[in-house]
Design a protein around this nucleic acid. Structure first.
Lengths: 186, 186
DNA sequence: CTCAATGTTTACTGATCGGTACAGTTTGTT
DNA sequence: AACAAACTGTACCGATCAGTAAACATTGAG
């Protein structure tokens, strides 16, 4: 099995969906942008939704890998990494082509809680929360779970605010708030 | 001029767009749901986007009125109102039919920063930030603007997290974080 | 070389998209 | 009663939607 075409499709579809949105990106547009035939697409994925699920799977893997690694590179203590998350987010916000969180957008376009796309987006956030909880516990915080959830609120809020583009530096605001939260949980 | 039909259309379109999303709600679906003829719709609004802008205008007015009033009802000091915001949000999250923030969803479906729908969504957040800043200043906080922006991050994060539905009580997490932030700002 | 898997092109389906044309009906005012 | 404004129903436009059919080309392994 040589699934290289399939991977290529998922990767290029990720770009298109991230740039244009899910409903606004038709399969014909994907054909035009990826150079892959529609017949081939539907050999790999039975429906557009299945393709979207594969795209979200790739995005989850890539994003979490990138974020976790960047946090580790920027700080060596668990507490430092939780703070450094907002520096990493700041770098992301500055990237050209930044268009917010793909999972927030996915859950915005597929709202029903039972929709697989919605559920998979929720899974992504759950994994983030678990990672933050582990870091907070490592750092010795008493109520690590609550602290992690609060930091997650700041992270999601910073992404949304940065995408709305009405704030100069949502990452900096998030970082300062995170530092205050960590001190309060001290 | 009797704009009652127009108002009725905007109000019912708000419900439909909030429930189904913007791209996923076609004009024919609006005809079916509102009972208003398509011809009449296009007499009031030249395009679907114009209708969406009117819907967002109504949503902004209703939501801010509701939130500000609820905050005032739940607390009588400016500081207390900032905290009570998260109790108000918690009530909202519990409402049947809660589907997240309409402006976050609008900016997710119309991503280009120059798109009027995106810009109007950003305006809504700006007005919220101004209100929070005024409250923080009234409460005597030194860096009222920064505090307001941080609280806004918590609010947006709580809404997104509640909509993703992976957390039991995003409002409670937001409230506890807000209390900690207020304490940190002395 | 051969065979089978995987890919391609082209054309197509029925449904739906946003938006319009047009003729007829309801409604409020005088 | 009469008139105009507002609204309705129906039918339509070209474009696009997700998805399929069928015939042909490319490729890699035995």
């Amino acid at each position: 099995m040589r699934p290289s075409k399939r991977d290529e499709l998922v990767q290029k579809a990720l770009d298109a969906f991230y740039r244009n949105g899910f409903h606004a990106t038709g399969m014909d547009m994907l054909v035009a942008e990826t150079g892959i035939s529609k017949t081939s697409m539907y050999k790999h994925f039975r429906t557009k939704d299945d393709l979207i699920l594969a795209v979200l799977r790739l995005r989850d893997e890539r994003f979490r890998n990138w974020l976790y690694r960047r946090m580790e590179d920027l700080a060596d203590t668990p507490k430092g990494q939780l703070i450094a998350m907002f520096d990493a987010l700041g770098e992301w916000f500055e990237e050209q082509g930044f268009k917010g969180c793909m999972f927030i957008k996915a859950s915005s376009e597929y709202q029903e809680p039972t929709n697989p796309i919605h559920m998979q987006s929720a899974d992504h956030k759950r994994l983030l929360e678990q990672h933050f909880t582990a870091l907070a516990a490592d750092a010795g915080y008493k109520n690590a779970a609550a602290l992690a959830r609060q930091l997650l609120l700041l992270k999601e809020g910073a992404i949304v605010t940065a995408h709305l583009g009405h704030t100069d530096d949502a990452a900096k605001d998030g970082k300062e708030a995170a530092i205050a939260l960590l001190a309060a949980h001290g």
